[in-house]
Design a protein around this nucleic acid. Structure first.
Lengths: 254, 254
DNA sequence: GTGATCCAATTCATCAGATGAACCAGACAT
DNA sequence: ATGTCTGGTTCATCTGATGAATTGGATCAC
């Protein structure tokens, strides 16, 4: 009987999908703070424009991700952020790719990259299969081509693929779990990619080449060192264009 | 109308909870392999002894954790393990604390610990608040007391608290996200704790003391080195009692 | 035969409504 | 004060129905 489903022109995803996304974004955006109790199910259903069954499915997903806890009579409450599955892609997206990205979290990811990725590169140099090396090399080629033609957006995408391919080559599923964080950061960098980045990408390309060569030649230490340099380089871009961005995303006009 | 809910004397948790647990365990235990299609919802409901609504809530949780994907007409399929939220506590439990723990995963966690815990200790030495240092010290005291009285179980619990307290003191939510992995491994070690461990714990206690001292004295490098030694020590126990265990858990009798 | 087109069966998506169970708070008795 | 009882609130769970999406095959034109 409900008239929902035609929210904004585009039918887009399922009702559940949008409801879950809305709810998750609201929680991540602190509309409901830690410890807060959400409205009761019938009311939530009303607010989200779906039935109570659908609300329950959405809530169930957020419970699985550690964001909510629900008890009879007490209601549904927001758990402390420390308990959130922060490496889940959706959770990360809700926290980051929002209008006002959590810069503290971005800094934490940046810091964590320096913890994980150098060793990951070393592992890749030791263990990568031929196919995995080929994937890394392919990403590098894409980066080089993109940098050459000046397509910064494509360069960032290739950059991301490069780092993810290395993580995948560690043969360690725990380390691979970090891939969503890399994906989130570089995805964000992609959104703010401008011609201004061109120079830095060109310079950083050499570092990526060193990583690839080290992995190809099975030199873990060299791969590690090159990765450290690479991360430092990317960090500069992140700081300049995201962390220190004076205002939210804004159209840049001459 | 269903007669479910009185499975084995104890009513225990909610129907959803047990259904979710059963389903998750079955998937993690490869009863349904990657790419397999689960039975259709009404049939799953039958098998799990709950209504279709409850099945859908359970499935929704597993979808959120990256274990399942569901599409109209095609049905519900098991996603590749690489996509699972492996740092989620439930997922980890399903994979590890099962009757036959995934030793490859345990080895990966062990390896990953050496990647991030030394740096975590260093961060803790730089940033830990007084309260956080107190928490670490408390865990250390508990370890010492437990080792002294020979209560190996309590010693492992304190050991776990020690490492988790350090992670919590890094002030980096990404690093903290790996706490479930540490928790899982040390939790497993707890289950196989025997008097045989006593000696190693006593010896390892000194390493933990070095970590604590280094953090107290704000010496990041010393904290890192001591953590490395500690992990190597624990690794020995893990290898001997879990990874190389000839048979599953068995009552040890004289 | 080969391909495009259309139809129908299957499976999930979503809703509505009802009843049961758990739980917290306050009234009440002692 | 303390413990017990009772009620109301909220989630837990089931049932049944209908809509939507997708796939696989049947049909038809060439």
């Amino acid at each position: 009987m409900s008239e929902a489903g035609h929210i904004a022109g585009a039918p887009r995803a399922s009702l559940l999908g949008t409801a879950l996304d809305n709810l998750g974004r609201q929680i991540a955006g602190a509309r409901y703070a830690e410890g807060d109790t959400l409205p009761i199910e019938p009311r939530l259903a009303e607010e989200l424009g779906v039935s109570r069954s659908t609300v329950r499915e959405a809530v169930r997903a957020l419970v699985a991700l550690g964001m909510l806890e629900v008890r009879t009579r007490t209601g549904t409450r927001v758990r402390p952020r420390r308990n959130w599955n922060i490496l889940n892609r959706d959770v990360l997206d809700w926290l980051i790719s929002d209008g006002s990205p959590d810069t503290g979290l971005l800094a934490a990811i940046d810091e964590a990259r320096e913890v994980f990725e150098p060793k990951a590169a070393a592992f890749a140099a030791e263990r990568a299969s031929d196919a995995e090396i080929a994937a890394i090399a392919q990403a590098y080629d894409d980066m080089r081509d993109a940098a050459r033609t000046g397509d910064i957006g494509a360069a960032v995408i290739a950059d991301r693929a490069f780092h993810l391919a290395i993580l995948a080559a560690t043969a360690n599923p725990i380390l691979e779990a970090f891939d969503t964080a890399i994906d989130a950061v570089l995805g964000l960098l992609f959104k703010v990619a401008t011609a201004d980045h061109e120079q830095s990408f060109r310079e950083n390309l050499a570092n990526h080449g060193r990583i690839l060569d080290a992995i190809r030649n099975r030199q873990p230490d060299a791969a590690r060192d090159a990765m450290i340099d690479t991360i430092h380089y990317t960090r500069g871009n992140l700081r300049k264009h995201v962390l220190e961005a004076p205002r939210p995303v804004e159209e840049v006009r001459s």
